[in-house]
Design a protein around this nucleic acid. Structure first.
Lengths: 223, 223, 223, 223
DNA sequence: AATGAATGAGGATTCATTCAT
DNA sequence: AATGAATGAATCCTCATTCAT
């Protein structure tokens, strides 16, 4: 699945109404503004400590307007999670593709894994708000959000799994349950990204990514 | 304290004045009962969705009583985190020591790592509530709890680090930044424990633990 | 604002959405309605025995609405004190000026004192709720309110002091510390107003005021 | 009425019980300790902000013990008001009598008034806690306490009235309604005492008392 | 589309009082 | 007499959501 596809627009009731001065493009723009404001305030204070008034204020809109674009606070957060997942996958996908094209690497599969790791850490490094939203807030919101988050996780792991299987087929990676391997890779990346939120590691994300890649490929045993 | 012990059965039909704690021992017992009840309901619904009335009801007490033992909902949760950390460390410590003694292993350091991983997964396998509390709810409660959780994490990683250093000194593990290695180990364990909360993996925790140990030691590259 | 005006009658059977304040004028009006309702219930039962629900009910509003206009119960009471002070000062000021103009009195200073006393007693006679609020409840609310009340007191005494000094300069009043004299005058007025809350003196406030004026001017000694 | 009479002991149920090791004297002592502690904490924080736990702690007693001596928080406060009234009247009575005996003053009536004023201010000067209790807290507690306070006030005024009448009969004070005069005297004293709670007047209570006496006797008019 | 006043359910916390010990 | 654990009614305040304008 390619998440870079545009999401199905949430035409609820107004979809069938007359064409007005402000078109869909305008509407999407306003929606994105709210989403952006929501990201800022949710990342700052967490889901429960953030009020819809905070969101509205940050967006420079009035109180009830947010409800014109989103049905509820929860719906807003789900939309935010979708948005972040898309951004993440766009970033990784682009990175992997760029790399494959640039290097014309015959060992694309292994290379893809390396670059996915680097790109993921890079993404969360550049957008710490995204890391907070996905790794911290999403976990605290009850079952519905947990399901959503694990959906994201599944898709993320699924993509890695594809690369793992490919790498195994070319013999670049030893045999083993690809799902579990993929999960392990994702786990390491996620935890590292989360940890970097709260500690001030002096190491750059490139160094950390390379360490993880090395660890995963070569293990801890002395060679 | 053994957290894996089944909770004290809830005496439901006692007269309301029969439950009076009278001495220090009784008092500590009552406190533990509340802690146990809190663990159950917090793990079930999460911190924010759980009310103090829920805690009291689960404990079979009036909810003013909970405030006799804990100053606030937050204080109760902090106490719960402390309690879980102690239980976890007791479980791991015991497990490592038991293993060292039982096997009289000259390669204690490496063995300790393996067994710590197994013991940790075992602990969370046996006490899924603990996993929910530590890996999910703790992250949603603002800075104070985040600090507390990362304190627990630091201590956990610190213990692993000791074992890593020891294993490096005996040449059983290749050189490299022990802190980062320890963190990677902890990250894998934590994510695995968390994941097992929501998926019904058919694999036992022993199998998973062994996979992780193998992955960490040997890496993904073909040998 | 005239506090002696009868409160706006409570429209009781309006639909709940009819009471929506729409513009600034309406908004100030709604605020005043809440203030008026608060005055009634606080004067009836005292600060601590009055709940915000009582205020809302008296105002015919839902009690979340009170919080739309006032940040807290304390803020509401402070606003009430401000409002009463303004009303009192408006009443006295008007009275003094009216008198000076009407009589074209060359001994304005002495006359002003007499009339300030009369006007103050008159004010509290007409608005016993105000007397309860200022003299009774304000004292029971801790330091912040005590400070507020004494601020009001200081300003009240300050005004009297000005008149005292003027009367001393024209020789109509003997020398002596004007602040202390002013305070004594204020003390007598305040206590008289307070006392009239609980006893049913048959005497009119005019008679009482004249007695006080006479007492203050001539003292108790036989002439 | 002489309030220096001992209060009727509050023998509720235990009065008829067997004579135990601790006698009535002991019991009264403990009761007084609680009263003293209550005075301290009520004066410090006010009635509503003080809990029975505060009282118990200040008295060095356990939580429920206070209830063995007083039926309720309100009963405790009423007892405190009684106690303070007795102390005040004892102080004034003693002072007046001492003065009359010492000076063998033929103008005892006028002298008594002067000395009552001085003694009262002195009392509240020496015991600011008493002033806070009577002038501040008593007013904020609803009708029952208001009635109690005005009873104290009535008795206080009544005593002054007696002296006023006597002074009028000996011609030392001009004619006029003695009750109203007495009230005015009491009002001035009370307000002065209250004011001295919150301002740091540099003047001693003797100077203030003399000013009030002079003001009352001679008035403000130039002689 | 946008506004913001109004609603009211919900929840943490306090504290006077009771009562078994 | 004294203790202090237990109770639960009471209350302030928050905030998601609605809806007239």
């Amino acid at each position: 699945m390619r998440v870079t596809d545009p999401p199905a627009p949430e035409l609820s009731v107004e979809g069938r109404n007359m064409r007005r001065a402000s078109n869909d493009e305008e509407k999407g723009k306003r929606r994105d503004e709210i989403l952006s404001a929501a990201k800022t305030v949710f990342a700052r204070s967490g889901f429960h400590s953030t009020t819809m008034a905070d969101v509205a204020k940050e967006a420079g809109l009035s109180y009830g307007t947010v409800y014109w674009y989103f049905d509820s606070k929860e719906a807003l957060f789900h939309a935010l999670m979708d948005s972040e997942e898309m951004a993440l996958r766009a970033h990784i996908g682009q990175s992997v593709i760029d790399n494959a094209l640039a290097n014309n690497d015959p060992e694309v599969a292994l290379s893809a894994i390396k670059h996915a790791i680097r790109a993921t850490l890079e993404f969360f490094e550049n957008d710490r708000q995204a890391a907070r939203l996905l790794f911290r807030d999403s976990l605290s919101l009850g079952d519905k959000f947990e399901q959503h988050l694990f959906g994201i996780y599944e898709r993320f792991i699924g993509d890695i799994e594809v690369a793992i299987v490919a790498a195994q087929q070319t013999g670049r990676i030893r045999q083993g349950p690809p799902k579990m391997i993929a999960f392990s890779v994702a786990a390491l990346i996620g935890q590292v990204a989360l940890r970097r939120l709260v500690t001030d590691d002096e190491l750059s994300s490139v160094v950390v990514a390379d360490f993880i890649v090395d660890l995963l490929l070569n293990g801890l045993m002395p060679r």
